[in-house]
Design a protein around this nucleic acid. Structure first.
Lengths: 356, 356
DNA sequence: GTGACATGTCGAATCGATTCGATACCGCGA
DNA sequence: TCGCGGTATCGAATCGATTCGACATGTCAC
């Protein structure tokens, strides 16, 4: 009973037609008599043949119907951030109706390793999507280009021949900065995303800042400059997670001259900062203003609503999906920069009175 | 320059060897002179040939190297639960070194729809993993069996010919129940996971309970019975999310005779219950004991540590990975029931004094 | 010197489908 | 009656690799 699975040829024989006719019966691409078709289908049913083997079809068409999504070094880390998950969800929703599947591809074999996962080199994928930009001279991107796999770079630095989708985070952060300046803040610190694969944690000096490899981190930092802000402190984190925000908050708020406002590069980090502030007995926003980025509602902050910049996650996923579609059709989609919107919450307010 | 990509045949011609020899040079499966090999590789380099086309290889070997992971109806919902993410992470970590990729496959085309996603029928996958059990007579499982795709069922009811991996949640819940009984609780309510695809929210009567389709929900409920508990109320939720826990908590705690303890079938739900209790001015655990399931540490509960049952997520992922491996080798892995451990926290205590 | 054996290379079959061009057959109008 | 156009079917080539058996060469022992 568990014989080698029946093939189209078996079905054709059993239905007493040629393979080509049998193929027609399934694909419907070509003229076929209703009666013949019925006979083929009946034979298939009887033999337990459940449709054409995708492998054969793929070889012929040269298409695998698979979109490789390159996530960071660890699924766990990427997916603890709801931003990743929702973007991916938007992508899957767009790709599904097109009959495309999403293959999860780790970027590097192990966290911190530059070695590219073998899947990047060898998996059958029609298009690749690099979810988190990528650093300059990214080996993953290099491998994909060598293979000739059309690629969509999300939140990355523009690269010739690679489709780009991103949000206008730089302008968003600038608006956030302007908001805080209007409120009267003068001592503003910032908590950033990871600088590079080394994922250090702590205060960053000028040298460190100059060496930022992740485009997204650099760009959001630049947004502050656009607003005319020179942060009194820049704290880099290993990843966008609440606990790293808490660590940052503790450190920044216990420094000799603590900031009156902290801009975090993500909502999770901002939530962590708020928790740290509470821990230290500071009231938000009376004693400290905190702003985040992404515009998701987080549980755990109680009644507080984080001041943030909302980015359209589902739309981003859809935009990536459309870029993939375009690449499959052989055209290069235009770079897209999706708009973001300042979303004032209850965590920002005027700075505390100077105790002069 | 963007000519049709070079094939192994092109490389072979250019290196003045036969295709078979060229193949050997890449695969290393067979004797080949170092010099010949060098020449082939050089020719490949020059032509811009980046290794054998996976499609061709796959057809020949009959293997795609892809494991389809069937997630619920919405990625968003599944992945907001850290339990899913961590299990998946464990799975990817185990499969990666084996050269296997994970294809994300939505179960149904749209939430609530019984229609099976076309990917289930047509994607090239060597093995399928159904992440959340599946209901009785699951159309997805039926489709996979029809295709003859070896399948691993996670947290599901045992099915002949399908590999099963799960945790001993029933015993875990029983232990949790015993713990509460020891503390002296008599009025215990429970907040469950989804009953079926209809994902209703609210109190469940006996009829409803009898019709539970999701095995995992049924089993965890049975654990209560094992402990000798007849819940004073059973609240079903659409999904394991904090907000559904909050809704459940509000309803259960404002009922005429509120429970003194609530067992939630997941930590996220339990966290929601705790938040609802706080909202209503109840102290945890003085006025209300709350227990969850999964044993993850959640941000947002402040200093409280949820009493819970810890399940080994990374191990679960690894166990699934090994089951996949076994199926690929043609053997049927033994069903596995991973052990869980009661993890007492600060959210359970003796019931409040009776106000008699 | 000859047979046994290892090594390296090649030709051809094979995996399972799709697709193009050829062929057979039909009815219909000239 | 012949030829034409359209429909249904078939045969064979094709996609890009792997793999088996055959063959040629070289080495070694007897």
């Amino acid at each position: 009973m568990s014989n080698p699975r029946p093939t189209l040829a078996d079905v054709a024989t059993s239905a007493r037609v040629s393979v080509s006719t049998a193929s027609l019966a399934f694909s419907g691409a070509g003229p076929i008599a209703a009666e013949t078709r019925r006979r083929v289908l009946a034979a298939a049913e009887e033999l337990g043949y459940s449709g054409p083997n995708p492998l054969g079809r793929q070889l012929r068409s040269g298409r695998s119907g698979i979109v490789g999504v390159i996530i960071g070094d660890a699924l766990r880390r990427s997916f603890r951030d709801p931003v990743s998950v929702q973007t991916l969800d938007g992508l899957v929703s767009t790709l599904g109706p097109l009959g495309l599947g999403v293959l999860l591809v780790p970027g590097s074999t192990a966290p911190g390793t530059p070695a590219v996962d073998p899947l990047v080199e060898s998996a059958a994928m029609d298009v690749a999507v690099i979810m988190w930009g990528g650093t300059a001279g990214d080996p993953v991107l290099a491998a994909l280009r060598r293979r000739g796999t059309p690629t969509v770079l999300v939140e990355g630095a523009p690269v010739e021949g690679v489709a780009a989708i991103g949000i206008d985070d730089r302008a968003g952060i600038a608006r956030l900065g302007a908001h805080l300046l209007e409120l009267g803040h003068e001592r503003i610190a910032t908590v950033t995303l990871a600088f590079s694969h080394d994922r250090r944690e702590g205060l960053a000096d000028a040298d460190r800042v100059a060496g930022i490899a992740w485009e997204i981190t650099r760009r959001r930092l630049a947004g502050l400059g656009d607003a005319g802000i020179t942060p009194v402190a820049i704290w880099e984190t290993p990843a966008s997670l609440v606990e790293h925000g808490t660590a940052a908050g503790r450190a920044l708020l216990t420094s000799p001259e603590p900031p009156t406002a902290i801009i975090a590069q993500s909502d999770l980090l901002a939530a962590g900062v708020v928790l740290a502030a509470r821990e230290l007995g500071l009231r938000v926003p009376q004693d400290l203003s905190v702003a985040g980025f992404d515009g998701r509602d987080l549980p755990g902050l109680g009644p507080d609503v984080l001041t943030s910049v909302a980015q359209p996650l589902a739309e981003k996923g859809a935009a990536i999906g459309h870029a993939v579609e375009a690449l499959l059709e052989g055209s290069m989609p235009l770079p897209q920069l999706l708009p973001v919107a300042l979303r004032p919450g209850t965590t920002t307010g005027p700075p505390p009175q100077k105790r002069s």
